[in-house]
Design a protein around this nucleic acid. Structure first.
Lengths: 262, 262
DNA sequence: CTCTAGTGTTCCGTCATGAGCAACAATACG
DNA sequence: CGTATTGTTGCTCATGACGGAACACTAGAG
């Protein structure tokens, strides 16, 4: 994160220094929540004044905000505005909204949509179930690629050799988390055969999820749709109950994206 | 949008040219959906190659994506990632999630949270009601400041002289839309007195919404919480029914932000 | 098929522009 | 009250971003 020699090293990296730094500023703020000019400058490895000018440029356009006159900086609402446009553009979210809503209504559980992004599962949409439990909002979050049903589905779309590399470090969250490469591969193979994935207590104790792939016209796995809820309610039998509904919904979205069942 | 002489004109505008241009690129993509290098260059008033380098810099960091090798560009998922962090940061969204969810569950209608941003109401969060109707997602959208209940609430926090300037042009959406400055002022005054706002068929025929202010510790209107649904269901009587619940919820959020009822 | 008119992409020399310095203002702390 | 932090702002120099022009590639027309 410090030495950005990237000017035009090979030909694959054509970048603009200040823009690149500005984006780094945004990412620093995203992960830190808030930061001061000096702190940002240190992280960037540049002079205070340089960092200040970058932040000021971002602030003029509403991408960052200053907590108080002469205070720390944090991400601004301008980002949300852009994100609104970005999700609207993702025909994925657009096309699936109605279907996911209906699925959530029918089952009463929370429905999530995730895509592969930079070695993690990025949650792009969520419709909450009617049950008042489980109110966490996942949208915009990035979850490691081995501990959820969505992750396994997304991995199932990759060629075998890329699976382990993409999943990265198999950190353990609960006793049930998959931590060996061998078991992860086996799980992914199972997903390919059965067409869905289940994860019980793997990311969080008491949290169960089922996921199914969403494919585009060329058959690639573009996203994963999951249904999640507390383990005591979403037990073995209940999972079998809702599975057909979930599969049907995912298939429906796939078809809207041009996928024709093989 | 063309002549950006803004280098350091007065002292209030300290900006970095390339960063500023890069942000403009993002905004162009946000409003156009997708655009090619040539188109972007034209809009920016710079050379093709300059525009290309900017886009490439953004692409390297995932803020924009290229539709296909050698194709048009559109906003990327990186934006969504940042936005996730931004909303998490907005203590507003954080603090209110649980309360908005409960409100949605109790009433069965859709709950929205909007803030004032750059002369428009920016919707920052939404929890859908259980009723399967009305599936539009407003998050990230910017709505004119005169045609919704949220808008009136947000305006009610401004000094009188700024109201008309901030609201801008009073475009008509339906026969019920407020189009005269005088009527808008009257509506805002009414909101101040009653502590809530109602809008029936003003933005869209058949859409009714009620909104209440959320205040911070110093008593400023920081956001507006609304409850919306189809007019036939959310009729006069029903509005009166849910109003106390809405007011209580908004008050609860205000209190979490440090507001002590006067 | 060629020819033209569009794309997006790359290379390079030049000069505007953004970087670093250092001084400044405004806090917080001892 | 001094000292040690912040965030902020002119100033100057060279760095790095700019525009020009040539390239690669696709699509369509003739």
């Amino acid at each position: 994160m410090s030495n950005n020699t990237a000017t035009r090293v090979d030909g694959v990296l054509t970048t603009v220094q200040s823009v690149d730094r500005a984006i780094t500023v945004l990412e620093i703020l995203a992960s830190a929540g808030e930061a001061g000019v000096t702190e940002i400058a240190a992280e960037l490895g540049v002079h205070k004044s340089t960092a200040f000018r970058l932040v000021a440029a971002l602030e003029n356009r509403g991408l960052v905000e200053q907590n108080s006159e002469r205070g720390k900086y944090c991400l601004g609402v301008g980002i949300i505005r852009l994100a609104g446009a970005a999700t609207a553009r993702l025909d994925l979210v657009q096309e699936s909204r109605g279907i996911t809503r209906q699925l959530a209504a029918e089952t009463g559980e929370t429905v999530n949509l995730a895509v592969l992004s930079d070695g993690a599962a990025l949650y792009v949409d969520q419709v909450s179930g009617s049950s008042a439990l489980q109110s966490h909002n996942w949208v915009g979050q990035r979850i490691p690629l081995h501990a959820t049903s969505n992750a396994k589905v997304l991995l199932s779309g990759l060629p075998d050799k890329e699976i382990l590399a993409t999943a990265g470090q198999l950190r353990s969250f609960t006793p049930s988390t998959i931590t060996s490469g061998k078991r992860l591969r086996a799980a992914v193979t199972k997903v390919r055969e059965e067409g869905y994935a289940v994860a019980v207590d793997e990311l969080e104790l008491g949290l169960t999820a089922v996921a199914a792939p969403i494919r585009n016209a060329s058959g690639d796995v573009r996203a994963s749709m999951s249904l999640s809820g507390p383990t005591f309610r979403l037990n073995r039998g209940r999972v079998d109950d809702v599975l057909p509904t979930l599969l049907a919904a995912a298939l429906q979205v796939s078809q809207r994206l041009g996928w024709r069942e093989a």
